[in-house]
Amino acid sequence: MNPWLVYALSGVALFSVGLVGLFSHQHVVKRILASNITGSGVLLVLVALARRVPSGPPDPVPHALVLTGIVVSVSSTALGVALARRMARLQAEATHSPEHEPRSDGEGP
């Protein structure tokens, strides 16, 4: 078996594990982590594809794609974690002061 195929198949395995995690967990942080694993799987497949022609230098295009993919995944993780933190704080405020109405600036839904 070619070494690149091993990496590509590991990438597919990571992707699948991540997807299962994303849809089987309720906890927001676990789901964000699962989406990270899914993303790493895809990026690993891309890295492996760069080596699919055994002779000569590796194909640079997938590497460029992986770099872009990492930037996208960092941004989406940061956004997800920021939202989750904010939500946890609001929920904590709501449970600590039960007689206090949950804060709402607008007019609801």
């Binding site: 956004l79 939500m87 609001l90 600036d105």
Partner: peptide
């Protein structure tokens, strides 16, 4: 709006 329903909806959409 940074309220609970909005944050919940945003995270749900993201995930």
């Amino acid at each position: 709006r940074r309220d609970l329903p909005g944050l919940d909806a945003g995270l749900r959409y993201l995930l």
